[in-house]
Simulated scan of single mutants.
Amino acid sequence: MEVEPLPVPAGPGALAVLPRLAGALAGRGPVAPYPADAAAPQLPRHAAAGLPDDLAVVVGTSGSTGVPKLAMLGAAALAASAHATHERLGGPGQWLLTLPAGHVAGVQVLLRGLDADTEPVATDLTGGFTPAAFAAATARLDPRHRHYTALVPTQLVRLLDDRAGAAALATFHGVLVGGAATPPTLRRRAEAAGVAVRTTYGMSETAGGCVYDGSPLTGARVRLDDDGRVHLGGATLAHGYLGRPDLTFAAFTVDADGSRWFRTDDAAHLGDDGRLHVDGRLDDVVVTGGMKVAPRLVEEAALEHVPGVREAVVVGIPDPEWGQAVSLLVVPDPAAQPLSLAEVRDLLRPHLPDHALPRRVTAAPAVPLRGPGKPDRAAVAGLFDVA
């Protein structure tokens, strides 16, 4: 048994791979989906006898902590993910694909369609993602079914900014938003527009989102260690990494009772409501003056309390006095008045401790991205003048 690279076109052409995905789930050989306009993945050698018996899909990780890895997802894990998603959303339905199907979030839209026995509809991405294309694709959904879609936060912002896009979005029975943090202000805005938002948390190693609105899906498990690091387990877990038993051993653990866990690089806490609140990646934490600052807390405060800010990303920039300086990138509304660093700090001072207040602020027309919807923090750092 060998893993077959599977090029997946963007837009409606992605639906052509549905029969091959169905075959992979049925045991007719695993596939490794990748964007058709990209180079085929270099699949490492892995002894056929050592591959998991039910291996169906191999998906690349985002590579945010180094070389991208290839997560091995079994048919049982993918089925558990699809079943649990439909259960949480209120039943099977028809899905609208808006994301590249070479990544786990897009592949999962296709796989959920197979689980529900409904053919997905794909948004035309010829000119990139646009509200007009989204609205046109929404109109092609079968009215006999419940309707679902999955977005990244940037797409949600664009749709809410467009009258036709927002109207189309409000017709869905469930809208999954993931790939990056969804600011509370954005969620409230979507809910006010009548959008049935569900924020998701997960990764390739968990067959995509396995925690919705802070609550694990049926079959998924969450625990935090003493440092607040998130560990994920349960039925949707990957078998490990293709051709990299060393990385599998480092990231996946087994309890005495046989329970398997994936050790994430994220920190989180449980709120008073018992729900999981992800604070961000452990390696994104800014250490300034010996104090730790979680970027997400500053980003959410900027979105909430600085007028005219549409998107915000915080990074740590090397600083001779503080070690790292809390540095805030904002994407402003076109009509917003520019604000000085002193004005931004004054607006945030009632809401953040002094050590978390930005020491640098810059603006850009868009946030640099890495993968579907994820901020490229290295590229963001490069936007600051550190001379």
Rank of each mutant, 00 (worst) to 15 (best):
P52I: 07
D53E: 15
D53K: 15
D53N: 14
D54L: 07
D54T: 10
L55V: 03
L55E: 06
L55T: 03
L55A: 06
A56I: 12
A56L: 15
A56N: 14
V57T: 05
V57I: 15
V57C: 14
V57W: 15
V58Q: 00
V59L: 12
V59M: 07
V59Y: 03
V59S: 02
G60A: 15
T61G: 12
S62Y: 01
S62D: 05
S62M: 07
G63E: 08
S64G: 14
S64P: 10
S64K: 14
S64T: 15
S64H: 15
T65K: 04
T65H: 08
G66Q: 03
V67H: 09
P68I: 11
P68D: 08
K69I: 04
K69C: 04
K69A: 11
K69Q: 09
L70K: 02
A71S: 14
A71Y: 08
M72L: 11
M72H: 03
L73V: 00
L73P: 00
G74W: 02
G74Q: 00
G74M: 02
G74F: 02
G74N: 05
A76D: 12
A76M: 07
A76W: 10
A77W: 01
L78A: 04
A79H: 13
A79M: 06
A80R: 10
S81R: 00
S81V: 00
S81A: 11
S81C: 01
A82Q: 10
A82D: 09
A82L: 08
A82S: 14
A82N: 10
H83Q: 03
H83A: 08
A84D: 05
A84F: 12
A84K: 05
T85V: 14
H86W: 13
H86F: 15
H86I: 01
H86E: 09
H86P: 02
H86R: 11
H86V: 07
E87G: 00
E87I: 00
R88D: 04
R88T: 06
L89N: 04
L89S: 05
L89R: 11
L89V: 05
L89G: 03
G90N: 08
G90I: 02
G91Y: 09
G91R: 05
G91E: 00
G91V: 02
G91T: 04
P92L: 12
P92T: 13
P92E: 02
P92G: 08
G93S: 01
G93E: 03
Q94K: 03
W95M: 00
W95K: 02
L96F: 09
L96E: 07
L97V: 14
L97E: 09
L97P: 07
L97Y: 09
T98E: 07
T98V: 13
T98K: 12
L99G: 02
L99N: 00
P100D: 00
P100Q: 02
P100Y: 03
P100H: 01
A101W: 06
G102R: 08
G102M: 13
G102F: 13
H103F: 13
H103S: 01
V104Q: 10
V104R: 01
V104Y: 10
A105N: 00
A105W: 02
G106T: 10
V107F: 11
V107Y: 07
V107E: 11
Q108K: 04
Q108E: 12
V109N: 09
V109F: 13
V109T: 15
V109A: 12
